[in-house]
Amino acid sequence: MSWATGTSLLVGGFLASAVRVGTPLLLAATGEMLTERAGVINLGVEGAMLGGALASALGAMSFGVWGGVILGMVAGMCIALVFGAFVVIAKVDQIICGTAITLGVVGLTGTAYRQTFGAAGPGLSIPTFASLPVPALHDLPVLGPALFTQPLLTYFAFLAIPVTWWMLFRTHWGLSVRATGESSEAARAAGIRTRGLQLFVTVIGGGFAGLAGATLVLAQVGTFAERMTAGRGFIAIAIVVLGRWHPVGVLIASLLFGVATALQFLFQALGLAVPYQLFLMLPYVLALVALAGAVGRVRAPAGLGK
């Protein structure tokens, strides 16, 4: 094997794993961005993701991978619906409510998981998505394995970006969502049913988060573990800020996090003796650095969190 092929294999593999670990973040962040555009900040996205992960694992064991995907999305939507009912209809504090929802889901999934599989938690055998090479494109050097030999859900996540962009910025519905996020009173005065709209996008955001959890289980890890989302939902919230509440920005920020997470695989492959904990810290530290650089120059939806 020549040096050039070796390098291109290494880089290709690195990019492929970056895209793969970036996909759940991209999905969760896309949903959270929609929700925040309507003025609702959902810290329960971590819980929705975790609930989606467990539901997809259980679903996939009984009904196959697609059953897992659907159940994961439904679980995420149900969790977001509870959150939405509290913050949109009862108007309780969004941050505190989101924290409580996540806490509750940690308890629920932990209990359900131990009840179903026992405290030891054996490796579950869950059907998973295989890679689906895109005809012709997957033969490209470097980019072929990185972008066009991915599980189906990854293509869906990428496809969701132009769709969300079009919905938000080119449709009347998207205008209503953004108007609600800037000033729900003004939007209501203009005849928009703001509460229904906020509840709807919150649930859609939950669906994305559930799908993110399903992707984590069915296309990445291949099993469920307690608290397996490990803060990815919170990172998704940071990604939304970093991506400036815009679909393209969210895409770039998610890939950045994918790269930061995948670095550990690359460094292991290169045989560098650096403590692995430093790599596990890296995405969170990067999030903080990126937020510090981004926040001053961007403006959140004016009605966010109110």
């Binding site: 409510c97 409580a100 806490l103 509750g104 940690v106 308890g107 629920l108 932990g110 209990t111 307690e226």
Partner: peptide, 12 residues
């Protein structure tokens, strides 16, 4: 861990 559910319900 089921006690987290109780705590979450109390906050809500």
């Amino acid at each position: 861990v089921s006690v987290y559910v109780v705590e979450a319900v109390i906050i809500l």
